[in-house]
Simulated assay, not measured.
Amino acid sequence: MKAANVAQLKKELQFKSQDELMQFCLRLARFKKENKELLTYLLFESDSEEGYIDTVKEEIDAMFEDINVNSYFYIKKSVRKILRTIKKYIRYSGNKATEVELLLYFCEKLKSFRPSIKRNVTLINLYNRQLDYIKKKIPLLHEDLQHDYSMILEELDQ
């Protein structure tokens, strides 16, 4: 079965009743964890972006605490997993300011992580790639946010 594109789905959904749409959403939520997470964000957390950011930051903190520091191999795997999780939460939000704030927080945590990432080239490259990505995203934000985030970025770039 070939999946329909978004435009086709949108046209077809316009002809469905509210009850049918609710049933579709609940059925989607049963199939994948990501669908449930996105639905949870849209229903409960999209109204308060600051609260959502704080919740994600708490999860990032917990994930950093759970990293196995016995070997850089395990550290790299864990850091990549954390970054994948952050990118997933960024996709849910779709807000550029949220994206920059969460990535800056990730870089802060990674820079202050012990053992130092400076002993591993892969982790340094990952860190630098995220800083470069943030530099490209900051000009797309409001002027006040640009200034605030640029200051944080300068501290991390040193």
Rank of each mutant, 00 (worst) to 15 (best):
I138E: 02
Q18D: 04
P139H: 03
D144H: 09
E12Y: 15
I60P: 00
K76I: 11
S78A: 14
E50C: 08
F31N: 13
N125K: 11
F73K: 15
Y105G: 02
I152F: 01
I86A: 03
D54A: 13
E155W: 11
K109H: 09
N95T: 04
V56E: 07
L38C: 06
N125S: 06
E65G: 00
I75S: 07
S93N: 04
E59A: 12
P115H: 09
L141Q: 07
K33F: 15
R114C: 01
I53M: 05
L42A: 13
P139F: 03
Y52R: 12
T55W: 05
K87Q: 04
S48T: 08
A4Y: 05
A4T: 06
L42Y: 07
L126K: 06
A4E: 11
K36N: 04
K57Y: 10
V79Q: 02
L43H: 13
Y41W: 10
N70R: 08
Y72C: 04
Q158S: 05
R80V: 02
I124C: 03
I138Q: 03
I53T: 08
E65D: 13
L83V: 05
L103W: 00
D54M: 15
K36F: 12
Q8V: 06
N68V: 09
L28M: 13
I152R: 13
F24M: 13
D132C: 02
E20F: 03
L153V: 06
V6G: 00
